[in-house]
């Protein structure tokens, strides 16, 4: 299928040869030719880094049970607050992920299916899985005495990083295929996030929900493979296995 449109893109220097030549000549004539040095940019950042507070913190668990656990560190591994931070991160990511696939579902319904692309049923299944992953983490956080409504620093970090993913998917100008590109970025980081979480839970001996978490890891791996195959179909190419 055609995934790129041909048109009058005006952002390049070749849009107007005459204007471009005049502009280049001006840059040579009116600029002070000196050694270009972007080093001061880094110096300003370093100076502010010394004075700045962190983005935020992980709150102590609200329940006494949780506080005891956190202080003892017996059941949550060597870095109990790191686990809370990362649980908060995946919870927020899955919640937004459900909204991401809802947006993709809207585009799919509007544009219709394409050969080798996702079916409505497949996207609906992913939406439900993202939602169930969100609920799974919510239950883990509650069980260990945490507050699932907290925006942890890592949740905030990932929301900042992935802000563009949702912006692509909800833009009425973007296509289904372009939104799947956004989903690919989300799935790549989500796969890494779930594997990290699984390892932290094992490390912390938090094994009550281990099977569910392992299933979530497999679900996310499937999502990634599906999105890769849909994009390959849209671009009329064969997917190449990672381990080739």
């Amino acid at each position: 299928m055609e995934t790129t449109e041909i048109g009058i893109n005006r952002t390049g220097i070749a849009t107007s040869k005459g204007r471009a030549e005049a502009m280049l000549e001006a840059a040579q004539t009116f600029s002070v030719v000196a050694e270009s040095d972007a080093t001061p940019v880094a110096e300003v950042r370093a100076r502010y880094a010394e004075e700045s507070d962190p983005v935020g913190s992980v709150p102590p668990p609200p329940s006494i049970k949780g506080a005891v656990k956190a202080v003892a560190g017996e059941l949550l591994g060597n870095q109990p607050f790191q686990l809370i931070d990362k649980l908060g991160e995946r919870l927020a990511f899955e919640r937004t992920g459900a909204r991401l696939y809802e947006a993709i579902l809207g585009k799919l319904r509007h544009e219709g299916e394409f050969a080798g692309g996702p079916t409505i049923e497949e996207i609906e299944r992913i939406v439900l899985q993202e939602y169930s992953h969100f609920r799974l983490i919510d239950s883990i956080i509650r069980r260990i005495g945490g507050d699932p409504t907290v925006v942890t620093p890592s949740a905030n970090l990932h929301a900042t990083m992935s802000a563009g993913i949702l912006a692509v998917a909800v833009d009425p100008r973007t296509t289904l295929v372009q939104s799947l590109e956004a989903a690919l970025l989300a799935e790549l980081t989500d796969n890494e996030g779930w594997e990290t979480l699984l390892e932290l839970l094992v490390e912390g001996k938090e094994t009550v929900e281990l099977e569910d978490v392992q299933q979530a890891v497999r679900d996310e791996s499937d999502h990634l493979a599906l999105v890769r195959s849909w994009l390959a179909a849209a671009q009329e190419r064969e997917t190449v296995p990672f381990d080739l």
């Binding site: 220097i13 471009a20 502009m23 280049l24 840059a27 040579q28 600029s31 002070v32 030719v33 000196a34 050694e35 270009s36 040095d37 972007a38 080093t39 001061p40 940019v41 880094a42 300003v44």
Partner: peptide, 28 residues
Amino acid sequence: PSETVAAGYVWHPGTELARAAPGSVTFG
């Protein structure tokens, strides 16, 4: 700030990275 950000800056099509002759651009 305005001096710091533009130290030695000369506009070039495709950014100053596209302009760079060996040894002429320093980053960190």
